[in-house]
Amino acid sequence: MDGLTACMALLRLEGIGPSRYWRLVEHFGNPLAALRQVPSALLDTLPVRAQSQWREFSRLNTRSALVAWAEEERTRCADSGVQLLWHGDPSYPALLTEISRPPPVLYIRGAHRALGLPQIAIVGARRATTTGLDNACAFAAELARAGFAITSGLALGVDAAAHRGALRGSGTTLAVLGSGVDRIYPRHNRSLAEDILANGGALISELPLGSNAEAKNFPRRNRIISGLSMGVLLTEAALHSGSLITARLALEQNREVFAIPGSIHNPMARGCHQLIKTGATLVETSAEIATQLGGLLAEPATETVPEALPDRRQQALVDALTGGLRSIEQLALDTGQNPGELMGLLLQMELDGLLEPLPGGYQLTARGATYCHLVASTPMAE
């Protein structure tokens, strides 16, 4: 029996889990020795089914149901194009080996060599604002063009925007799942998962085939996301969110952590601000990340000035919003325009993707901020 089969059989014992697995392996030296010598004191704490499984293995060894399951799982993976990597394999991701007690086995669907690329994780809120989604997409595209693979969790919101941004930048992106690699979650992102695979990326999980997405799986998924990556970028997050946990795990793993600041009135920016207070690097451009990580950042594609320049009323609105979220009343004072005029302008600029409504007022989108920068030195249209 080789190391991978022993690893999978040991993990198959109900109640073992990664934590107990590593305690056993660290004590006995390897998974096969650990499987053969599960201490009676530990065995007595396991469910009755696990005790029965182990006793059958101790009698039948390679002919036991435990080993049969591991071998059948390996066959299922081979038949469906899924590669298995256990922590003793030379191809196991080097950065992941550096974290405390890494995933014993990885299921990989797609280009397994992508795991060896320098990776940057981009994470954030599922219910992100338009600005948060724009930032995730833009940063991912620029970092992908610079040669970094973009890693995230395939969730709705920022995760999906980061994967799409990497693809838009003609780069590689990896999705770490809280389900089996054959059970895409959320289902809404199935086509995105296929795009990732079609463009040289990979889907990764430490869970067996057929595993459904469950809440208990996502902290483990988040730990893999940060563990695979040289650094983690948080684009938007509430104070109590899974993406904030991912960033904190990265700090614990001695990874670089970056955060994009936002308006003090935006609840989705509070997680970023909290992280900056506790050690994350505040960033405004992808070049800052690439420079700190030593990447070979190509110059981001130069934005062209829009053909239709804003008129003076629109430019006054953009200028007023550069300081952050503003209410209609505040905008009226800032621009000298009456609320009736403003409503029409705000609607048009929202349709143009330059700003977005939030509770308490309006703020610029990433496109709006870029637009403002590009026309700052250009004469305004009358």
Rank of each mutant, 00 (worst) to 15 (best):
residue 214 E to Y: 08
residue 57 F to W: 12
residue 238 A to T: 11
residue 132 G to R: 03
residue 247 A to W: 01
residue 260 I to H: 04
residue 227 G to T: 07
residue 287 A to M: 12
residue 339 P to V: 09
residue 346 L to F: 05
residue 373 H to A: 15
residue 86 W to K: 00
residue 129 T to I: 03
residue 36 R to Q: 07
residue 292 Q to F: 12
residue 328 I to K: 04
residue 230 M to L: 15
residue 95 L to C: 01
residue 133 L to R: 11
residue 323 G to K: 10
residue 68 A to I: 03
residue 303 E to D: 14
residue 201 G to P: 13
residue 133 L to S: 05
residue 270 R to E: 14
residue 186 P to L: 13
residue 2 D to N: 15
residue 5 T to E: 15
residue 211 S to N: 09
residue 304 T to W: 07
residue 253 Q to H: 10
residue 294 G to Q: 06
residue 123 V to M: 01
residue 94 A to I: 00
residue 266 N to R: 13
residue 203 L to V: 11
residue 254 N to H: 10
residue 305 V to Q: 06
residue 302 T to L: 14
residue 90 P to K: 08
residue 325 L to W: 02
residue 70 A to F: 12
residue 153 G to A: 11
residue 370 T to K: 12
residue 342 L to A: 10
residue 131 T to W: 13
residue 343 M to R: 11
residue 71 E to F: 01
residue 266 N to G: 02
residue 239 L to Q: 10
residue 37 Q to S: 14
residue 335 T to D: 02
residue 2 D to T: 09
residue 272 C to A: 13
residue 161 A to N: 08
residue 43 L to D: 11
residue 221 R to S: 06
residue 310 P to M: 09
residue 299 E to F: 02
residue 205 S to E: 07
residue 28 F to W: 14
residue 239 L to W: 05
residue 208 P to N: 13
residue 303 E to H: 15
residue 256 E to T: 05
residue 215 A to P: 14
residue 327 S to R: 04
residue 65 A to C: 01
residue 37 Q to D: 13
residue 277 K to L: 12
residue 293 L to K: 12
residue 141 A to E: 10
residue 130 T to W: 10
residue 337 Q to H: 13
residue 341 E to M: 13
residue 316 A to H: 03
residue 332 A to R: 02
residue 359 P to N: 12
residue 120 I to A: 04
residue 38 V to Q: 00
residue 362 Y to P: 01
residue 143 L to I: 08
residue 194 E to D: 06
residue 369 A to D: 05
residue 23 R to F: 05
residue 80 S to G: 01
residue 137 C to R: 14
residue 116 G to T: 08
residue 353 G to R: 15
residue 4 L to Y: 05
residue 103 P to C: 04
residue 330 Q to V: 06
residue 186 P to W: 11
residue 292 Q to I: 13
residue 79 D to H: 04
